[in-house]
Simulated assay, not measured.
Amino acid sequence: MQLATIFAGFVVFGLSENAKGPAIPRIQFDFMLNESQLGTLLSLNALGYLLACSFTGFLTRIWGIKIVTVAAFGTMAASGILIYLFHGYPMFASSYFLMYIGNGMLEIALAVLGARIFTTNTGTMMNLSHGFYGLSSTVAPLLATGLMSATVFGVTLDWRGMYLVMLLLSVVPIVFALCGSFPGDELPHEDRIPLSLLLRDPVLWLMVLILTFGVVSELAVGGWLVNFLEKAYGWDAVAASGMLSAFFLCFALARLVLGPVTDRIGFNLSLIVFSGFSAICTFAAIGGGERLAFLFAAAGIGIAMIYPTVMAFIAKRYPNGSDTAITFTVTLMGLGSVIGNYAIGFIIEFVKNGYGAGTPAGLLRGLQAGYGFIGACAALCAVFGCILYRVLKKRKELI
């Protein structure tokens, strides 16, 4: 039941997080949002994610991981109902915000549960479990596109109905969670590493930077790739969603296949190699134009490995403080996501206006600059990975 909860949880997580790719252009059209306003919307949602990350670790210590996990899935299901029912922008934004609250709670709950039960072959198992996120993310854009055009009882689901269907799938892992028992809640508080001690470790701060830049690069693809391909190259929704699905297919296969590599070559070296590969692919795809667009998908191979490898690193380095370390790291990562989404929208708008807001060239350059920021985040992830490697090698603490 523990494994079923984790695997099913990551499936639902991937669907809810990456259905937004095809939906965002429609949401933007329905509410008449420009790129800057769209970036602000995504940043506010990331703020909800951040808030949830900040209090979920506290709730886990009080209620236990089982109740928190069920509450996370329940919040996501409720948000799907509210998105479908409310049509005004303020209520839609609030419902969308609630979905990210659920996502943030689920992020911490699944990470903590994984750290507790994957005590051997940690890199392999972390990547395998996160591979289910990649698999569901692969089908999410195409499934979302299909659901948005589906008709039920003579009514077209559109993007609201699509979110309703996707998020109500949260009921499945709720059943698994209620039927299972969860380890680790019995650990005495005095045996846990206090946050004050963790904050003195520079390695943890480097992990925060690596995770932040890695996840901004990862999540931004789901929000901006379809938008980029449709507006920069004139692709239709199906073709653009197909490329996003190809990205997540590479993403999922990497986690399913390459997990043992992280255990073999070490977590530190893995972070450098994989994030650097993603950055190279992203910059090559932008510079090469439409003929090298397939490299947008190939970038998923590298960026997929960052999050689970960081979680595996934390589980190994802080065995009695993984709950606290994960909560702290992921919370600050959420703050970076807020800034990252806003920065992409701002960069697109700024560069577009500089080249001519109403011209095709201005739009293309703006989109290229915004997406270039995604590649830059992957590159910075590799840079801080190199610094971490040097620090730990000097201490003889490489993992």
Score class of each variant (00 low, 15 high):
Phe13Glu: 04
Ala19Cys: 14
Gly21Pro: 05
Ala23Cys: 02
Ile24Tyr: 01
Arg26Val: 12
Ile27Leu: 03
Phe29Gly: 15
Met32His: 13
Leu33Ile: 10
Gln37Glu: 04
Asn45Glu: 02
Tyr49Val: 00
Tyr49Asp: 00
Trp63Leu: 13
Gly64Ile: 12
Lys66Ser: 08
Thr69Gln: 10
Val70Cys: 15
Ala71Asp: 09
Ala72Ser: 13
Gly74Glu: 07
Gly74Trp: 06
Leu82Asn: 10
Leu85Gln: 12
Gly88Ser: 15
Gly88Arg: 07
Pro90Glu: 03
Met91His: 11
Phe97Glu: 04
Met99Lys: 08
Met99Tyr: 09
Met99Asn: 09
Tyr100Gly: 01
Glu107Pro: 15
Val112Asn: 00
Thr120Gly: 04
Met125Tyr: 15
Met126His: 07
Asn127Trp: 05
Gly131Asp: 00
Gly134Asp: 04
Ser136His: 05
Val139Gly: 14
Leu143Asn: 07
Thr145Pro: 01
Thr151Asp: 11
Thr156Ser: 06
Asp158Glu: 07
Trp159Pro: 00
Arg160Tyr: 11
Gly161Met: 00
Tyr163Met: 10
Val165Trp: 03
Leu169Asn: 04
Leu169Trp: 11
Val172Glu: 08
Val172His: 05
Ala177Arg: 10
Ala177Gly: 11
Leu178Ala: 09
Cys179Ala: 15
Gly180Arg: 05
Phe182Val: 06
Pro183Met: 08
Glu186Trp: 00
Leu187Asp: 12
Pro188Ser: 07
Pro188His: 03
His189Leu: 12
Glu190Ala: 14
Asp191Ile: 09
Arg192Pro: 03
Leu195Trp: 03
Leu197Tyr: 13
Leu197Met: 13
Leu198Gly: 08
Val208Tyr: 05
Leu209Ser: 08
Leu211Gly: 11
Gly214Arg: 00
Gly214Trp: 02
Val215Met: 06
Glu218Ser: 03
Glu218Cys: 07
Leu219Gly: 09
Leu219His: 12
Val221Pro: 07
Gly222Pro: 05
Val226Pro: 04
Asn227Tyr: 14
Leu229Asn: 09
Ala232Asp: 02
Tyr233Leu: 02
Val238Thr: 15
Ser241Lys: 08
Ser241Glu: 07
Ala246Cys: 11
Cys250Thr: 14
Gly259Lys: 02
Val261Gln: 10
Thr262Met: 12
Asp263Leu: 06
Phe267Gly: 08
Phe267Asn: 11
Leu269Ala: 15
Val273Ala: 14
Phe274Cys: 12
Ser275Glu: 06
Phe277Arg: 09
Ile280Ser: 06
Ile280Gly: 03
Phe294Gly: 09
Phe296Ser: 06
Phe296Lys: 03
Gly300Glu: 05
Ile301Met: 09
Ile301Gln: 06
Ile303Thr: 14
Met305Gly: 00
Ile306Arg: 01
Thr309Ser: 00
Ala315Arg: 05
Lys316Glu: 08
Tyr318Lys: 04
Ser322Arg: 12
Ala325Ser: 14
Ile326Ser: 12
Thr327Cys: 07
Thr329Ile: 15
Val330Glu: 10
Thr331Tyr: 01
Leu335Ala: 15
Leu335Val: 15
Gly345Met: 01
Phe346Ala: 09
Ile347Asp: 01
Ile348Leu: 02
Phe350Gln: 05
Gln368His: 11
Gly372Asn: 06
Gly372Ala: 07
Ala379Leu: 10
Leu380Asn: 07
Cys381Gly: 11
Ala382Gln: 01
Cys386Trp: 13
Leu388Thr: 02
Tyr389Asp: 10
Arg390His: 10
Leu392Arg: 14
Leu398Gln: 04
Ile399Leu: 13
